[in-house]
Design a protein around this nucleic acid. Structure first.
Length: 418
DNA sequence: TCTGGGGTCCTAGGACCC
DNA sequence: TCTGGGGTCCTAGGACCC
């Protein structure tokens, strides 16, 4: 059996840990740039605030303190997430960290699953303060359904185990088609048109039909719903195949200088992520875009991919090539809203192809980057930069409602006045 | 005024190989 | 009129996830 542990309203719950006075108040967390709502407490959901609504639409509620809004604080959420995983690891050797707020646990051979799952849930709550729900079932897809079922129908207990065919059938019938893991908007529409409205309907569909209309992805889904496991737990963290760093700007940029500064910073972030997973990349892609929501403004989107002579993760090389790309796609006369850098063609350090005619990266370059990383990330200060990254940061994202990094910075610890 | 930022996998079709 | 039978690699686009 597989358990899916999913944190409830994760980002909102993290903010509440350090703001206990908001424990029963509506809380929302906003995306980068304080753009739109990406997490809501139960109270906020009950007020009808939908996922993804632009912040300006609920501005009034926020200003009148009917809703408490936070800018997203990924340093905090990441650290709390690690603590949750640390606690979960005590309960099984086999754990897949699926996302920042979800993990699959292999409970094969375990008995008394309901009480074990309840124990997992209460321990996480005790150790971290984060509320979770736990769904237990024979496959990952069914564990997702069990988890949803627990959240929806047994929130108090927070645990649901699909250990009999009757319970599986009941949960499948209670799950509408668009709530199945792997069914998005397009498939939901297509399935509804064929009168397949619930997970139960899909589980009874013909395998050939599903394969023809939803490829092997759908076929796997069908098996999983029928209790035959097709998706195994991924216990090892594979290095990423693409790495992207992009942001919307706090203000529109019309000049090349601040845009270059932003791109240099995104490139440096990509290079750091590469080094962190001990990889090097063969391609550097840059893109820029105007604001697609501004219907009256001239629109421009462009991107370019630069092939490196030798795969690399040196900040200086990645930045240089990202800026070269930018200079090729930059056009005067537009209001730029967003830019990004993507590194791809990623291979492990030491397994890359050497260039025939260009010099190979030397060990000194490696050491320089190591020093850079140690200084920047030993205390999270990020003080050491390359000149191209600049100091102006006119492009910086808006986050006016940012909480402290309570758990990772000594200078931002929680202060209590007695 | 104001609308996020990351990722993955699968398939079809074209270019090319012997 | 008649024109083989395999393969691989790459890319774009479509689907999905949190």
């Amino acid at each position: 059996m597989i358990a899916l542990v999913d944190c409830n309203n994760f980002y909102a719950s993290c903010e509440r840990l350090f703001a206990p006075e908001l424990r029963s108040k509506p809380v929302v967390v906003l995306s980068n740039n304080d753009g739109c709502v990406i997490a809501r407490s139960d109270e906020a959901k009950a007020m009808g605030i939908k996922m993804g609504v632009p912040a300006f639409e609920i501005k009034n509620l926020i200003e009148r303190q009917k809703v408490y809004a936070f800018s997203s604080n990924y340093t905090l959420y990441g650290d709390i997430s690690n603590r949750v995983v640390q606690t979960l690891s005590q309960f099984t050797d086999e754990i897949e960290i699926y996302s920042i707020d979800e993990a699959f646990l292999n409970l094969r051979g375990f008995s008394n699953l309901e009480s074990y799952a309840t124990q997992i849930r209460s321990t996480v709550k005790q150790h971290t303060g984060i509320p979770t729900c736990v769904g237990v079932a024979p496959t990952k897809t069914l564990a997702k359904i069990a988890n949803r079922y627990a959240k929806k129908h047994h929130k108090g207990v927070g645990v649901w185990v699909l250990d009999t065919s009757e319970k599986v059938e009941q949960a499948l019938k209670a799950t509408s088609i668009e709530d199945i893991w792997g069914v998005g908007r397009r498939y939901a529409k297509m399935l509804e048109a064929h009168n397949i409205l619930t997970a139960y309907d899909l589980s009874k569909a013909s395998e050939n039909w599903v394969k023809a209309n939803m490829s092997v992805v759908g076929q796997r889904m069908l098996y999983e719903l029928r209790g035959i496991s097709c998706l195994s737990l991924e216990l090892i963290n594979e290095p990423q195949k693409n790495i992207c760093t992009s942001r919307s700007f706090g203000m529109m940029l019309t000049d090349k200088a601040p845009l270059s500064e932003a791109v240099a910073n995104f490139a440096a972030a990509c290079a750091f992520k590469l080094r962190k997973q001990r990889s090097v990349a063969n391609f550097v892609q840059v893109f820029v875009t105007t604001n697609p929501f501004a219907k009256n403004e001239k629109q421009y989107f462009n991107s370019i991919t630069i092939t490196l002579p030798v795969a690399d993760s040196d900040s200086r090389i990645i930045i240089k090539n990202a800026l070269l790309g930018l200079s090729k796609i930059y056009r005067d006369g537009f209001k730029y809203k967003k830019a990004g850098v993507i590194v791809s063609g990623i291979v492990p350090e030491g397994e890359y192809q050497l260039a025939l005619f260009s010099p190979n990266p030397d060990n000194n370059a490696r050491k320089v980057m190591q020093v850079l990383d140690v200084i920047n990330h030993s205390n999270g200060s990020n003080k050491l930069k390359l000149a191209a990254q600049g100091f102006d940061r006119t492009w910086r994202v808006k986050n006016e409602r940012l909480s402290q990094r309570f758990t990772t910075r000594f200078d931002e610890l929680l202060t209590i006045n007695i």
